[in-house]
Design a protein around this nucleic acid. Sequence first.
DNA 1: CTCAATCGTTTGTCTCACTAACGGTTCTGC
DNA 2: GCAGAACCGTTAGTGAGACAAACGATTGAG
Lengths: 160, 160
Amino acid sequence: MSDSGSEPTRAADRPAAPARLRNLPTRLLSLAAIHSDRRVNEELARVDARKWHYAVLAALDEAGPASQAELSSRTRIYRSDLVAVLNELADRELVDRAPDPADRRRNVVTLTGPGRRQLRKLDGLLADVEDEVLAPLTPPEREELTRLLTTLVYGRGRNG
Amino acid sequence: MSDSGSEPTRAADRPAAPARLRNLPTRLLSLAAIHSDRRVNEELARVDARKWHYAVLAALDEAGPASQAELSSRTRIYRSDLVAVLNELADRELVDRAPDPADRRRNVVTLTGPGRRQLRKLDGLLADVEDEVLAPLTPPEREELTRLLTTLVYGRGRNG
DNA sequence: CTCAATCGTTTGTCTCACTAACGGTTCTGC
DNA sequence: GCAGAACCGTTAGTGAGACAAACGATTGAG
């Protein structure tokens, strides 16, 4: 076999893509995101976590306990999908989910000690993956990319 | 109801995301790609097409007839998934798929007249979507973004 | 001639974004 | 206070995309 290693078929080495596709920003965005997402998920899987876990833990750490609806809109996880994520986090005892006595429709989700510790761990892990994924770019380029993507996603806020 | 229009919940108007998420390049990439992909697919759906249709048509237009394996590596569509895409394109008579007499394992896929016409149409359509998606950026910013993404996806080629 | 590789195809898995609906709770208008 | 609207968590399901595994047919190499 010409390719005995199980290399995930890197972006760089395959035959030339059609110029039209190669220069299409929307396609570049897709390809970059696919690769980046995959690496992130692979690494997180090694510590029994997923992207959404990080999102929820970070949201709780930064804004304190919240209802699921609140978490949903802060993390952009659909409230239907959030249920499973919270189940997983609660199973691992990284968050605590209890009915809100003040409004019994709601649950109050709270970060636990182990949750906070796991968050720190994921912080470090993600920093490494970011570094790897952005490796082809110089530090100023990375900053510029972040800035441009921020504008793209959040619009030109007063702080843009 | 506070929101009678069926707006797809734009990026800009929702509550603040946690700073950690907001600044995470991999996440920004995901979010940008999700939005961009959705817009592209929505618009293509209006003319009974999908992203992959465009990719295949463009590849055929630029490099001439090809086998499915070749198309697969040029467009990055998995060869298993390519089957369905080619079925759809063949149903619409945008491509012609015939066994290769020189190597009977292969099929030769060829762009038809209507296929070429459809490609032109999609070219225009996509240009519009690109414009819409990149609207928050100035023209030089768009170029810079494209450049950075290209480096990210294809590595630092000698033409980078 | 045998064995490995290639090609198209089928089938299936997993994740993700997203919709719809349900039972329970709270809020509002009357 | 009471009916109906709005909100909340939850379940179930859809459709697409990325990807793995295997199979029959064909071709190429030793």
